[in-house]
Design a protein around this nucleic acid. Structure first.
Lengths: 192, 192
DNA sequence: GTCTATACTTTGATAGAC
DNA sequence: GTCTATCAAAGTATAGAC
């Protein structure tokens, strides 16, 4: 946080706190303390908690999208790219910074806060559907499978994998969910 | 809530609020109002918010387990029972009353509150592994599949299906995730 | 842009009367 | 068992000086 200006530190602090504690669990005071900024600073740069949250969520959504896109454009066949996305290094115990907000009623009832979340999952499912369609055309995926339904199932495995990792207290649960899903796609087991 | 005594109404109100708003988002005052009970009543029957939450979470965990068990002991082959569990009527937009607590740091750092959650997912994954093992013995499931990993993937699909339903604002996302997963298990599409 | 002061509400609980 | 104070702390701002 040292090379950042105050506005940027406020956004980053808010992202971290939303990830760790959700929207209800995050107070302006906690944000200010983590950012090393005072009350005045925060209310100068943002109109209030919702405004700051919107900036933070937007940033997290963009970052998630960029990281996913990197996996999908990596080396290998379309199916291998899907596997790479699922197996990508993740801090499974922390959960998904975007998906977790889905549980927060105050976030979901505010159209401004909800929009980037909706858009993220819509994009991700679409992108995965694209790759799975190519995989099917390559003959790497069962011809009888619906790419869109399969994509939705895989996004769910990722999100649910986070839930299981937190429930069991172990990132291994995430990995097992992913490997279980990949085995169903007939992808050979990975290294770990 | 009309045939219940005060203690029971407090537990039910807490269950609902934990489901809708999580632990941080649920205040003793809101619980009392929904239960139609005063401060004094609540603190007479429970030592405080964590004590009441423990009773509520225990109840939700037990109920989840009983409902799952009903699907697993219904008619049909082991694989059909698994499909019945996944397709069971659910209020997908409300999410999982147990899984959602996994996101709440104040719940997860308290061993008393965490225990029923951990136990629920451990039991569910184990129960599903059992059914999938039988399905494999029946020849209904690929011999090369690991029942435990497959079970973990399916529990993740359910939990992630809830996330997607909330993110998109439509229960259809849950159904699509489940049908996508069942297709990978080579289960024929359902009625809806 | 940042700081301090002030204000009003909600949270989570305790005390004691009935 | 339930009710009504009462309370200290935290939440979420606004106002105005610097």
């Amino acid at each position: 946080m040292y090379g950042m200006d105050t506005r940027e530190r406020l956004i980053q602090s808010t992202r971290e706190l939303l990830w760790e504690r959700g929207y209800v669990g995050t107070s302006p005071k906690a944000i200010q303390e983590r950012a090393g900024a005072g009350q005045g600073s925060m209310y100068h740069h943002f109109r209030g908690k919702p405004d700051l949250a919107r900036a933070a969520i937007d940033r997290s959504a963009t970052e998630l999208r960029d990281r996913a896109q990197a996996a999908f454009t990596g080396p290998g066949t379309a199916l291998e790219q899907v596997a790479a996305y699922l197996r990508r290094e993740r801090d499974a115990l922390k959960g998904c910074p975007v998906g977790r907000l889905t549980q927060d009623p105050d976030v979901m009832k505010d159209p401004e806060l909800r929009e980037p979340i909706e858009r993220t999952f819509s994009w991700l499912t679409g992108r995965l559907t694209e790759s799975l369609t190519r995989a099917r055309d390559d003959g790497d995926l069962g011809a009888g499978l619906d790419p869109a339904a399969t994509a939705t199932a895989l996004v769910a495995v990722v999100q649910g994998g986070y839930v299981l990792a937190r429930a069991t207290g172990s990132a291994a649960a995430y990995a097992q969910a992913v490997e279980g899903a990949l085995a169903l796609l007939a992808v050979r087991p990975g290294e770990d």
